[in-house]
């Protein structure tokens, strides 16, 4: 049975690096893996969705409604949008950060209130202030690796294995920053 992880956020939040770290880690564990992302128009500040699936054999690269074991949400509205994709009994890890989409900015729509509470009343969640943790690690840009750290706890892949792939995946001058961010997430 494949494990389905969905990463959702806003274009520019670093979701692609998160999926790369996750993908490389599960390969190193010997799993078959597929990572699916969409480039182009949707990256311009729009919603972005990445699917990571791993197991003995993975066919479809996409995750449909009711199929995600874990959803890693970089932003609260995107978490809310992704809710239908969570499997019954699955878990949603939500970065408690709010970014207004253009219809809210122009006043054409309203940003829903108390999103994290509403999601938590329906499914299992872990709400984190990843922005503060990333700043503590040294840069707000490390939000993605903080969230990977939190997610890593719920997999059966050992801490050291994640550290190994982060070292392989990120540019050398950012390794320390990212390892610190990962540890902060993992030890939360």
């Amino acid at each position: 049975m494949a494990k389905n992880i969905m990463i959702v956020g806003v274009g520019g939040q670093g979701t692609l690096l998160a999926s790369r770290i996750l993908g490389n880690t599960v390969i190193n564990e010997g799993y078959d893996v597929k990572v699916s992302e969409v480039h182009g128009m949707s990256q311009r500040g729009g919603s972005v969705v990445t699917y990571v699936k791993y197991g003995d054999k993975v066919y479809s690269p996409i995750i449909d409604r009711g199929e995600a074991d874990i959803i890693l949400a970089f932003e609260t509205l995107e978490a809310y949008r992704a809710l239908p994709y969570l499997k019954k009994g699955g878990c949603m890890i939500i970065n408690n950060q709010k970014m207004n989409p253009m219809p809210v900015i122009t006043g054409a729509a309203k940003y829903p209130e108390n999103i994290t509470e509403k999601i938590s009343s329906k499914v299992r969640t872990e709400i984190v202030d990843a922005v503060s943790l990333a700043k503590e690690a040294g840069s707000i840009k490390a939000v993605n690796v903080v969230l990977i750290g939190i997610m890593a706890k719920s997999t059966d892949i050992a801490y050291e294995r994640w550290v190994e792939t982060i070292k392989q995946t990120v540019p050398e001058k950012f390794i320390d920053l990212n390892l610190k961010a990962f540890a902060l997430g993992y030890n939360l």
């Binding site: 500040g45 019954k88 940003y111």
Partner: peptide
């Protein structure tokens, strides 16, 4: 049928791409 899933009870504003 597909597996059951939870949904929000309200309209979720779209997040279309925008100029940077």
């Amino acid at each position: 049928d597909r597996p059951e899933f939870d949904e929000s009870d309200e309209q979720i504003p779209a997040r279309p791409p925008v100029m940077c």
